[in-house]
Amino acid sequence: MSHRHVGSLHAPDGEMAIKNARDVYTRRNEGVSIWVVESNQVLASSPTDKGPLFEPSNSKVYRHPTFYDIPDDVGAM
C-alpha cells in the first residue's frame, strides 16, 4: 500500500498528530492508514539540486517497464 504526503499540521505529540490528521485529511473517506512524522525529522532534497538529481533519467525511457504486458493479477505496480 503506497502512502502519499497529504499535508502538514500542528500537534503537541504523535498520538494527537494522528488524530488531527484523521480529522483534517480523512473526512471524505480517503483514509486507510496514517503515518505521521515530525517535520524536523524530514530530510528533504534541495530544489536547487533538481537538475543533477532528476534530469539524467529524463532521457532514459528504457528504464520504464512500459514495453511489457503486465498480467492483471499483479495489480498496481
Binding site: L9, H10, A11, K19, N20, D23, V24, R27
Partner: peptide, 11 residues
Amino acid sequence: PVLEEDIALAN
C-alpha cells in the same frame, strides 16, 4: 483555537 481543533469539533 487552532485549525485542527476547529475541524475536529465540526466533525
